[in-house]
């Protein structure tokens, strides 16, 4: 390996790492607010790529079916809860939030499918279709067991990933997709070619990290989210509903997942089940941040991207093994630096 190859690998790695940054931040965001390690995160990114590809080839995306199934299930559960509590006044609100709102983008799809959309419009429609998935899953799967231990939530989360990847196969089929490049711009700096795609990924990731930061620092909703993550009881005493904060966290998190899906779609071939491993690599980055620190998470995810890029160059079949083996030293370091919670409350 010479310096030029190393530079190219690093550039590639930084681009991949930037995608992991977005996903890892989403992970940390959802975990810190809801205590749920949202394993299906990667699936959502993969579904985004598949939806975008379907729109590109002017097919009807399977996402619509998926969202419809989830929306109907969530609405049914919500209505059942309302009928049991006999608070009928909440019915219109429930119908709006769990049925109409999630299905709105799907309805729009009915109009536009077949029509040729330009790239930005395609991306917007895709993200709008994907966004309801995570909050709906939250309502259907996690809300009924909100009091459960982190470990039980994690088991459910893993089971949910397998359910989703099965549904992915049903709604999207087994074919892999790769979308058109977002840009064909390219420059050469110091003899190293840099693709516009890589630049776009890094810039987009930076912009969305900044937006997330602004949301947390300068909006009351963002602060309410932070408060819930820091001290649930304290937040409840202020009138902040953890369930509501959870929904916002899931929405934001799935926005991050959707954006990383859009960014990765032109550079990797994505199958219905590709999300899992991508998500796990982002998760390695999140562990480097101890599942709490946003800046360390970002740094860790970039590192994972670069490491993967070099590992793939050395021995492609073992690149996953290399990345996951990184966990050993990281966890060893973490086990001496992270404060562990005093009691895990299962007494």
């Amino acid at each position: 390996m010479n310096a030029q190859i190393a530079a190219i690998l690093t550039m590639d790695g930084v681009a991949t790492g930037a995608i992991y940054v977005l996903m890892a931040l989403g992970f940390v965001l959802i975990f810190s607010v809801t205590r749920i390690v949202f394993v299906p995160f990667g699936d959502i990114a993969a579904f985004t790529a598949l939806t975008l590809a379907a729109l590109e080839s002017r097919q009807f995306p399977g996402t619509v079916g998926l969202v419809a199934v989830l929306a109907v299930a969530a609405t049914a559960m919500e209505l059942f809860a309302i009928l049991r509590a006999r608070s009928f006044a909440r019915i219109p609100r429930a119908l709006f939030f769990y049925l109409v709102l999630p299905l709105l983008p799907a309805g729009v799809m009915g109009f536009v499918s077949g029509a040729t959309l330009n790239a930005p419009l395609r991306i917007i429609v895709t993200v709008a279709l994907i966004l309801p998935i995570a909050p709906l899953l939250d309502r259907i799967v996690f809300r009924p067991i909100a009091d459960a231990s982190v470990l039980l939530l994690l088991i459910v989360s893993v089971a949910l990933h397998f359910a989703l990847s099965g549904m992915g196969l049903i709604f999207f089929g087994p074919e892999g997709v790769r979308t058109q490049s977002l840009t064909d711009f390219s420059v050469t700096a110091a003899g190293v070619p840099i693709s516009g795609e890589s630049i776009l990924i890094v810039v987009a990731a930076a912009i969305f990290c900044l937006l997330l930061f602004l949301f947390f620092e300068f909006t009351i909703q963002g602060k309410a989210l932070q408060a819930t993550a820091m001290n649930r009881t304290g937040a409840r005493l202020m009138g902040i509903r953890p369930a509501h904060a959870g929904t916002v966290a899931f929405l934001l998190g799935s926005a991050m997942a959707a954006i990383s899906g859009v960014l990765i779609a032109p550079v990797n071939t994505i199958f219905y089940d590709s999300g899992f491993i991508i998500g796990l690599k982002a998760f390695v980055g999140a562990i480097i941040g101890g599942l709490v620190s946003f800046p360390l998470t970002a740094a860790g995810s970039l590192f994972v991207g670069v490491l993967e890029s070099f590992a793939a160059f050395e021995s492609s079949p073992f690149k996953e093994v290399t990345v996951f083996s990184l966990l050993i030293p990281v966890l060893l370091w973490r086990s001496y630096t992270l404060l562990q919670p005093e009691e895990d409350g299962e007494e």
Binding site: L151, L291, E320, V321, L331, Q340
Partner: peptide
């Protein structure tokens, strides 16, 4: 390397290693 940390670190690591061993 994991048992000193909170429970979910062990669990998530086992997913990653499960995959690594499979590959």
């Amino acid at each position: 390397v994991t048992l000193r940390l909170g429970g979910h670190f062990l669990s998530l690591s086992t997913i990653a290693w499960g995959l690594a061993i499979y590959f």
